[in-house]
Design a protein around this nucleic acid. Structure first.
Length: 986
DNA sequence: AGGTTGACATA
DNA sequence: GTATGTCAACCTT
């Protein structure tokens, strides 16, 4: 090696893990062998070798090597036995890829270097030194912070997934210290992943500050007494040894006796046929073609290579791949579900060939496509806006994103919007940005912006054009903001909902940033970077237009690309009907419900607040009296100390963090034994909870212009398909206690109107009776019997007439237990009985209802095999951890998955009802408006005169909501009532 | 200022 | 035993 030469060192082991987690699952089509990390690796190496202009590296390598860890045991374990001790085993579908990636390295004709007793990082450090001594430069292909200590004038790093160079300035920016101080910094912070201890309580910020102050670790440890902050000083003095051990662990060894010399690492031109043979064997069609073009080879004449390594029994492994054999899976569907989905899904039959080919191509393209924020356009005049609109008309698809003054769509004013017409081509249109300084009213309008009216007139025809598909992410928000500005957006697709349907239950949220990271490998600009936080929070109107452009156009660009990746997967996975019938139509339904809002009686709430405050104050006095001291009653920690340490009350139990538990259950038990204080605490908690969460908080949510409360429903928040409600949460308004119910009476109909509450009776048990096909339960529901009494009668051979309350309650608890995925532990807890007794109940229950045990077992087995469960409408809910070797994690996933089929099916049914009910009311000439959904209950507001006509329409829609997709073998029953307030209507 | 924990409201 | 969201206290940065 000589001056001017350039060595590329790929951190192979680091890349494997990162690629595995960053890239969507991918399986070899012929046998399901997992290959996502292998594909990522091959794409990356090919790009690096092929042409440095493709990446930010901008340098062509002369020498090239891929470095791996040999095993998990190294000399560092001698130094510190705990080193990397808490590493868990790699995921199952990653294991076969370790060998494949080494094989890939050899197929590229690259040196594949590893050495027993040393980590890849030590080998990298050694080659960096050798290259430097020979006068050459080095680029380390990795973003691992452990390697940043090597960065210097001749050594830099390159993050292949973010396409980013890491040199001395980047290290300083990220960690606050130059590379040569990284070792000292890591010695202080430690590393929880590698189990490097560091100094507890010292994070990167503090460490950087200390090193800035003292220069280096040795000086810091020697002069630790000078540190002003008491806790910090003590921590460093007490843990100096740990810091020194940590330094030994994080310092990379740069004198490993390596076998391959630098001369052995000279980069050879690619051996086309050999590489193509391997890529063919992996079934990487796109990359195979690319390599063939670049090396001028004929793919057809090259045979797929025989792999030399053991790839394991992958064909029977989990089938979670994006390009997975959906057709094969369809044949294993239970017949009942098959018919349900078949009835709904018109796009079936087209699952293989073109569709899955498109899916694979799109995923690959998206993962490697570049982002160029400088290419985004800022539109300042109507003519340019018109040209973008014309472009959107031509392509027929356009991503849209609104920027506003508020996260609350009911208060948001439009500040600007973005359009994207294809990946990388996006424009931001500022409308109402303001300047920061200027007058007292909060600044003047920024110059050179299109007026809202002009933009609206230009945009309206495009947004409403039935032949142009609008793409968004969380469309409900944009749809509602636009509607409030007089604009209708239709038709649309929502990337968030696509992800929710495709990947419900898998780790990671469906927010745009997570999806951009997951599918596009793109770290988006955080919203907070623009608007700040805390005291410095500003509305989007005060964001500089240049920054707003980069941010907002990126949002539209990302939405467009996500849609390209996700939409084709719907058909390939037979989920198109779930998206089209259960998700997308709800956007508009929910937006309208949110827009309508509900009236609350503020006077009543304020009066209740006063009552609760008085009651709480009285209880506080009594509590201090009995306790003999004043303390913070709301602090479980202080309360636990007083009850169990100072007053020595019996029967205390601990929470998982080791504190005394002071839950209502514990306090109730103590109260039952005659202690005075616990009862008062329980009462105090109830009153303060009602006050702070409801009577104080609700009036704050009354919208100043509509005078009503507008909740926000999340469509993609729950794993099971339920909605969730927030700001305020109107799905947990009290009902169980008399005090709490008073809050419900504050939800009222407007003058001349009534509220109608319509709720499904026992919907989840009915779903259970249907899917598990239980004759006794079906009969009981058909008869209209009291289902808990019927269960008790069957279990205990007791007639329903004259049945003691207690017996029915037990059956009721068991019925709920079945829905929740029963365990003896949980049932015992619920009924306050010994576990053995609970166990006997369950046994008896299964004897009488063997079909339910069979149903639970078959659900678990299928969830275990497929990695997901399905509702009867085909919604898929993933449980990737159901095969965990940890018994408690596994058991939890089993309970959750059995519950999800029932809860999810019930959620799907009410979704279907909600989607249909508006039209049914309209067709019946009724003016009732749906306001709220509480999982199995719908609340409407309607003119008093129409109540009698409305109830049968609502009931009809709800009771027949499963039809025609599924004909339930159990009737659905809906109870409905009208009143002036929610409490009396329910 | 932001995140975590324990408690508790609902279906 | 399932699924959520909010609040107050407390801890860390």
């Amino acid at each position: 090696m000589k001056k001017g030469d350039h060595l590329f060192l790929v951190d192979g082991s680091g890349y494997i893990f990162r690629a595995y987690h960053a890239l969507p699952p991918l399986n070899r089509k012929s046998d399901g062998l997992p290959t996502n990390a292998v594909l990522g690796f091959c794409n990356m190496v090919w790009k690096l070798m092929q042409d440095a202009r493709n990446t930010n590296v901008g340098i062509t390598p002369t020498h090239f090597a891929v470095i791996f860890d040999y095993s998990s045991k190294t000399f560092r374990n001698e130094l510190y036995a705990e080193y990397k001790a808490n590493r868990s085993a790699p995921p199952e579908d990653l294991i076969p890829q370790f060998g494949l990636i080494r094989e890939a390295t050899r197929a590229f004709d690259l040196p594949c270097i590893e050495m027993e007793g040393f980590e890849a990082d030590d080998l990298i450090a050694t080659y960096c030194r050798l290259a430097c001594e020979a006068g050459g430069d080095t680029t380390i292909i990795s973003s691992d912070k452990d390697l940043m200590q090597l960065v210097g004038p001749t050594v830099s790093m390159y993050d292949p997934m973010k396409d980013r160079q890491i040199g001395i300035p980047e290290v300083i920016e990220k960690w606050g210290v130059p590379p040569e101080k990284m070792i000292d910094l890591q010695s202080l912070t430690g590393d929880s992943v590698d189990n490097v201890p560091g100094v507890p309580g010292i994070g990167p910020k503090t460490a950087a500050q200390l090193l800035e102050q003292f220069g280096d670790l040795d000086t810091l440890l020697a002069r630790a007494g000078e540190i002003k902050q008491e806790k910090r000083r003590q921590a460093i003095i007490d843990n100096a040894d740990k810091a020194r051990i940590s330094r030994d662990l994080v310092t990379l060894k740069n004198d490993v006796p390596v076998v391959e010399a630098l001369g052995d690492l000279v980069l050879q031109p690619p051996n086309g046929p050999r590489l193509i043979g391997f890529l063919k064997a992996m079934e990487f069609t796109t990359l195979t073609r690319r390599v063939a073009e670049a090396t001028d080879s004929d793919v057809a004449t090259i045979d797929a290579a025989a792999l030399t390594i053991e790839t394991g029994d992958a064909a029977h492994g989990p089938d979670v791949g994006a390009g997975a054999p959906a057709a094969a899976r369809a044949q294993t569907q239970p017949a009942v579900e098959q018919s349900a989905t078949a009835a709904m899904d018109s796009s079936r039959g087209n699952v293989e060939g073109t569709v899955s080919g498109l899916v694979a191509t799109r995923i690959q393209q998206a993962a490697v496509a570049k982002f160029d924020p400088t290419a985004y356009v800022c539109v300042r005049d109507v003519a340019t806006l018109q040209s973008w609109i014309a472009e959107a008309r031509e392509t027929g698809t356009v991503a849209f994103r609104a920027e506003t003054t508020s996260l609350d769509p009911m208060q948001a004013e439009l500040v600007g919007f973005s359009l994207a017409t294809r990946p990388g081509r996006a424009a931001y249109v500022p409308l109402a940005h303001r300047t920061a300084d200027d007058d007292l009213l909060g600044g003047g309008m920024a110059p050179e912006q299109i007026s809202f009216e002009a933009a609206r007139d230009a945009l309206a025809p495009l947004l409403a054009d039935p032949s142009v598909l609008k793409i968004g992410h969380n469309v409900k928000y944009d749809w509602l903001v636009l509607r409030r500005h007089g604009l209708l957006m239709q038709p649309y697709d929502d990337a968030m909902l696509l992800s929710y349907v495709l990947d419900g239950g898998t780790a990671g949220g469906h927010d745009i940033a997570s999806l951009a990271d997951k599918w596009l490998g793109r770290a988006m600009i955080p919203y907070k970077d623009l608007v700040g936080s805390g005291k410095k929070l500003v509305t989007f109107a005060f964001v500089e237009i240049d920054r707003a452009t980069s941010y907002s156009a990126e949002g539209a660009d990302v939405a467009f690309r996500l849609w390209q990746v996700l939409k084709p997967q719907l058909a390939a996975k037979r989920l198109a009907s779930v998206y089209e019938r259960l998700e997308r139509p709800l956007v508009e339904t929910l937006a309208k419900m949110e827009e309508r809002g509900i009236s609350v009686d503020r006077q009543m709430l304020s009066r209740l607040s006063g009552d609760f405050a008085q009651r709480a104050a009285a209880l506080e006095d009594e509590i201090y009296q009995v306790a003999g001291e004043r303390f913070t009653i709301g602090s479980p920690k202080q309360l636990g100390d007083i009850l169990f340490d100072r007053m020595k009350l019996p029967g205390g139990s601990k929470t998982k963090s080791g504190q005394w538990s002071t839950t209502a259950q514990v306090l109730e038990e103590l109260a039952a034994e005659g202690y005075e204080l616990p009862r008062k605490i329980v009462d105090w908690r109830q009153v303060t909870k009602l006050k702070s969460t409801y009577t104080d908080a609700l009036p704050e949510y009354v919208n100043p212009s509509t005078k009503r409360v507008h909740t926000s429903y999340a469509l993609a928040a729950t794993t099971t398909g339920r909605l969730s409600s927030s700001e305020p949460n109107l799905q947990n308004i009290p009902i169980r206690t008399a005090e709490g119910r008073k809050i419900r009476t504050a939800f009222i109909a407007d003058k001349g109107n009534k509220l109608i509450s319509a709720d499904y009776s026992q919907i989840e048990l009915r779903v259970l009776a249907h899917v598990a096909d239980i004759p006794q339960l079906k009969q009981a529901f058909a008869n209209g019997d009291d289902i808990h009494a019927a269960t008790a009668s069957e279990m205990f051979n007791t007639p329903v007439e004259g049945m003691p309350r207690e017996i029915r309650n037990r059956a009721k608890a068991i019925n709920f237990g079945i829905i929740y995925g029963i365990s003896a532990f949980g049932l015992a807890n619920q009924l306050s009985i010994p576990r053995e007794e609970a166990s006997d109940y369950i046994k008896k229950y299964f004897e009488r209802f063997p079909g339910i045990r069979d149903y639970i077992e078959s659900t678990k087995a299928s969830a275990r095999e497929l990695g997901y469960v399905e509702t009867i409408f085909g919604r898929r809910i993933h449980y990737p951890e159901i095969r965990s070797s940890n018994p408690s994690i596994r058991a939890f996933n089993e309970r959750a998955s059995t519950n999800a089929r029932l809860q999810g099916t019930a959620a799907d049914i009410i979704r279907r009802a909600m989607i249909r009910v508006d039209k049914a009311l309209e067709d019946a000439g009724l003016s009732a408006r749906m306001l709220l959904q509480v999982h199995d209950e719908l609340i409407f507001e309607t003119a008093e005169s129409e109540v009698e006509a409305t109830i049968p329409v609502v009931r009809e829609v709800m009771e027949n909501a499963a039809m025609p997709a599924v004909a339930l073998s159990v009737p659905l029953q809906v109870d409905a009532r009208a009143a002036d307030n929610w409490d009396e209507a329910h």
